[in-house]
């Protein structure tokens, strides 16, 4: 699957609340971050569990400022997220 994002791109994590398995941590859903690295292609766990679909897709390292996640803090948190979890951040792009 083609890479939709590149390092430096601003993204927002989809605010989904799926009924089944997902590996989009709840604490970053709906939060704005920046793609810092591309970490290869891997099967999307949601699709593997839901319908046995192991199609690989790009996974990114996305960095969030602590303030964006928690409203406070000077640290950064970098989370690995599958492409399907991400949308372009068009508001601040």
């Amino acid at each position: 699957m083609a890479e939709r994002f590149a390092p430096g791109d601003r993204v927002v994590v989809r605010l989904d609340d799926p009924r089944g398995h997902t590996r989009a941590p709840r604490y970053v859903r709906g939060r704005h971050g920046v793609v810092v690295e591309v970490h290869g292609e891997h099967s999307l766990p949601d699709a593997v569990v839901a319908r046995g679909d192991a199609t690989p897709e790009p996974v990114y390292a996305v960095r969030f400022d602590a303030v964006e996640l928690w409203g406070a803090g000077g640290h950064g948190v970098t989370v690995n997220l599958w492409q399907s979890y991400l949308q372009p951040d068009e508001v601040t792009a």
Binding site: R23, P25, H39, G40, H42, V59, A61, G74, H75, G76, V77, T78, V79, N80, L81, W82
Partner: peptide, 12 residues
């Protein structure tokens, strides 16, 4: 010193 946290939430 700035703290950077890395969440191994996928295959890395």
């Amino acid at each position: 010193v700035r703290v950077e946290v890395w969440d191994a939430s996928a295959e890395t």
